[in-house]
Simulated assay, not measured.
Amino acid sequence: MNSVIFRFTAPYLTSLMLLFSVFVLLRGHNEPGGGFIGGLVAASAIAIYGLAGGVASVRRALYFDPMTLAAVGLIMAVLAGCASFVAGMPFLSGLWSFPAMLDGFAISTPLFFDIGVYLVVLGAVSSIALTLAESEDA
Rank of each mutant, 00 (worst) to 15 (best):
M1I: 04
M1T: 05
S3L: 13
I5S: 01
F6G: 01
T9N: 10
A10P: 01
P11Y: 05
L13R: 08
S15F: 08
L16A: 10
M17G: 15
M17Q: 15
L18P: 09
L18R: 09
L19A: 10
L19H: 01
F20P: 01
S21Q: 13
V24E: 09
R27M: 12
R27V: 15
G28K: 05
H29L: 14
N30W: 14
E31F: 08
G33Q: 05
F36R: 12
F36D: 11
G38N: 03
L40K: 08
L40Q: 09
V41W: 11
A42F: 05
A45V: 05
G50Q: 00
G50N: 01
G50I: 00
L51Y: 03
A52H: 03
G53E: 02
G54N: 09
V55E: 12
V55S: 14
A56T: 10
A56I: 07
S57F: 09
V58H: 06
R60D: 11
A61Q: 13
Y63H: 15
F64R: 14
D65C: 02
D65G: 01
A70H: 05
A70S: 10
A70Q: 06
A71V: 15
A71T: 14
A71C: 14
G73Y: 11
L74Y: 04
L74K: 06
M76K: 01
M76R: 01
M76W: 00
V78C: 08
V78I: 10
A80I: 04
A80N: 00
G81S: 02
C82L: 13
F85Q: 11
A87I: 06
G88T: 10
M89T: 13
F91D: 13
L92A: 14
L92G: 07
S93K: 11
S93H: 12
L95E: 00
W96P: 00
S97R: 01
F98Y: 11
F98M: 10
F98P: 01
P99H: 07
P99N: 12
M101Y: 15
G104E: 03
F105T: 09
A106M: 11
A106K: 13
A106P: 12
I107W: 03
I107T: 00
F113C: 06
F113R: 03
F113P: 04
I115P: 02
G116P: 04
Y118T: 03
L119V: 06
L119Y: 04
V120N: 08
V120G: 08
V121H: 09
L122N: 10
L122G: 11
L122S: 12
L122W: 11
V125I: 14
V125D: 06
S126G: 08
L132Q: 02
L132E: 02
L132F: 04
S135W: 15
S135R: 15
S135L: 15
S135I: 14
E136S: 14
D137Q: 15
